[in-house]
Design a protein around this nucleic acid. Structure first.
Lengths: 205, 205
DNA sequence: CTTTACATACATTCATGTATGTATGTATTA
DNA sequence: TAATACATACATACATGAATGTATGTAAAG
């Protein structure tokens, strides 16, 4: 059986993406060949080269499938309309961390992105997309911080840009270390008190 | 000219390590062959295989040469004898971040470790060493946090383990994002206020 | 009948590890 | 102290395997 219906073709595409997730996670991106991905997916390399241009393209698609929807949720401009923007920021950060802590697919993909791939050469596309997305987050968060400061929720001596950079560092650092060894500490338990500690620091004079 | 004196041999060894740093940084570890490292060092692969067992061993040596001394300084148990352990922790964290911000070699090596290598397979040695070192840091920092709490420098509702995990996340996150794009924010300027914000949060009731 | 969705087969490029060559430093001996 | 023997510090050459990309085959969907 060779030629499939369009739906079946999409299913094999997803099977390939699933397999890539598993194998990339287990061996790292650079150390896995497309033949290994194909075997894990139950197809041949021909199928992979039909759906994707090369390994970088496959990697891109794998990341986008999971991170694309997630990042959309994090970029809600309604953040600025909240009565308490700082609380809204807190909610966004915790939602994000909790989603990763709960969903094993998110965990796997972030672990691949952070610890099992090299942001270099042909992976530059993914890197650029990440940087652009991060920049938009910074812009939005900085606006929220400024608004919080206007409302007296943040002490006046804090610079909004600095406050944002610290918050992002905290979130990314938690993700970095938890994905490095998820037995090290319970992210779902630690996330809230840690974020709250930082935000409490922003309130102090 | 073939056989060199021991000092000359050590010099070529360091030339190889320097070259590895540059090429790994430019292309990523997985995407560079030992032939490229050899060319950059002005030697042949024979020289590399004489001094190192393989690429993983070379990578290990390159990391250890820079990180080894640095991590020794961060593990000073005198931390616990300080009159103000929290201030001592602050000093340690800032010293570390400032050293990376100032020394381009540290910057390069951390950038390689974080963004341009895959902690997988044969790199497991480096990963294990990193994890073990991080664990010792956590033990020491947790003791310092506990002592700070006994002295009333940290509000009683904070759990020392959680406080430590937040601090480490903050430091690692700053390093992660700054090495990702060192034009994004000035680490030397931002480090102190961000760390201080978190520590201020630890003092609040 | 044409295009799709793959499987199969092929050619080519590299990177690795090892084996071997070789000239020089260094210790030993006489 | 000079001759000798051995180890060192590489360079060179080779064999092997593996991964990639492409070209071609093919059967069924549309």
């Amino acid at each position: 059986m060779v030629r499939k219906t369009k739906e079946e073709a999409q299913e094999t595409r997803h099977r390939i993406l699933d397999a890539a997730e598993r194998v990339f996670h287990a061996q790292g991106v650079a150390r896995t060949s497309l033949a290994q991905v194909a075997e894990a997916a139950g197809v041949t390399r021909g199928a992979i080269y039909w759906h994707f241009a090369n390994k970088a393209d496959l990697f891109d698609a794998m990341m986008q499938r999971v991170i694309g929807p997630a990042e959309a949720g994090c970029l809600d401009p309604a953040l600025l309309e909240a009565a308490d923007p700082l609380a809204a920021v807190r909610g966004l950060a915790l939602d994000f961390l909790m989603q990763v802590a709960r969903d094993p697919q998110h965990q796997r993909v972030f672990e691949i992105a952070i610890h099992k791939s090299e942001y270099v050469g042909e992976m530059a596309d993914a890197r650029d997309r990440h940087l652009d997305c991060a920049r938009r987050h910074r812009v939005l968060l900085e606006a929220a911080m400024r608004k919080s400061q206007e409302k007296g929720l943040i002490a006046p001596h804090h610079r909004p840009q600095v406050a944002v950079e610290g918050l992002i560092a905290l979130i990314d650092g938690l993700l970095l270390n938890w994905t490095l060894d998820n037995g090290l500490f319970p992210l779902a338990d630690y996330a809230a008190p840690i974020i709250d500690t930082y935000l409490a620091g922003l309130r102090t004079v």
